[in-house]
Amino acid sequence: MNRRTKLAAVAVAVLLTVGAGGSAVAVPDLAGPGKDGRPVVAREAAALTGTAKVFRPAGDDITFSFDAHLAAKDNMDPEAATGTFRFSHYKDGGGGYAVAKVDCLLTGGKVAMVTGVVTETDLDVFRGKRVGVTIHDLGKHDRLGYSWVGRDTEAKLPKCVSSAPFEKVKAGTGDFRVLPWQPVFPTE
Score class of each variant (00 low, 15 high):
56 R>A: 09
14 V>N: 06
61 D>K: 09
36 D>N: 12
78 P>D: 07
94 G>C: 00
39 P>D: 08
72 A>F: 08
54 V>D: 08
81 A>Y: 08
46 A>N: 04
35 K>D: 08
60 D>Q: 13
65 S>N: 03
39 P>W: 03
89 H>T: 06
49 T>I: 02
91 K>H: 15
56 R>K: 11
43 R>C: 01
80 A>T: 06
63 T>D: 06
43 R>E: 14
77 D>I: 01
9 A>P: 03
24 A>L: 13
87 F>G: 15
60 D>W: 15
59 G>M: 12
96 G>K: 04
94 G>H: 14
41 V>T: 13
73 K>E: 11
56 R>Q: 09
40 V>D: 10
86 R>A: 10
42 A>G: 08
39 P>N: 12
70 L>G: 09
29 D>L: 02
35 K>G: 03
95 G>D: 12
10 V>I: 15
85 F>P: 04
93 G>K: 08
19 G>Y: 02
55 F>W: 15
77 D>M: 07
66 F>Y: 06
24 A>C: 03
8 A>H: 10
44 E>L: 06
70 L>V: 00
88 S>Q: 15
12 V>T: 04
68 A>T: 00
61 D>C: 08
12 V>C: 03
64 F>C: 01
19 G>V: 00
67 D>A: 13
81 A>R: 01
58 A>D: 15
51 T>I: 05
38 R>K: 11
63 T>G: 07
88 S>G: 11
96 G>V: 05
96 G>M: 04
35 K>N: 11
70 L>W: 08
71 A>L: 10
67 D>I: 00
41 V>M: 14
47 A>V: 00
76 M>N: 13
67 D>S: 03
45 A>K: 05
90 Y>I: 06
28 P>L: 04
30 L>Y: 04
26 A>M: 04
15 L>G: 10
82 T>E: 11
19 G>S: 09
73 K>C: 01
83 G>F: 07
59 G>H: 12
10 V>T: 13
7 L>H: 15
92 D>M: 10
65 S>F: 02
30 L>Q: 04
27 V>H: 14
79 E>M: 07
10 V>P: 06
29 D>P: 01
52 A>N: 08
46 A>F: 03
79 E>G: 07
28 P>R: 05
45 A>W: 14
21 G>I: 03
35 K>A: 15
86 R>Y: 14
90 Y>E: 03
90 Y>F: 14
45 A>D: 09
95 G>K: 12
42 A>F: 05
81 A>P: 02
21 G>P: 07
90 Y>K: 07
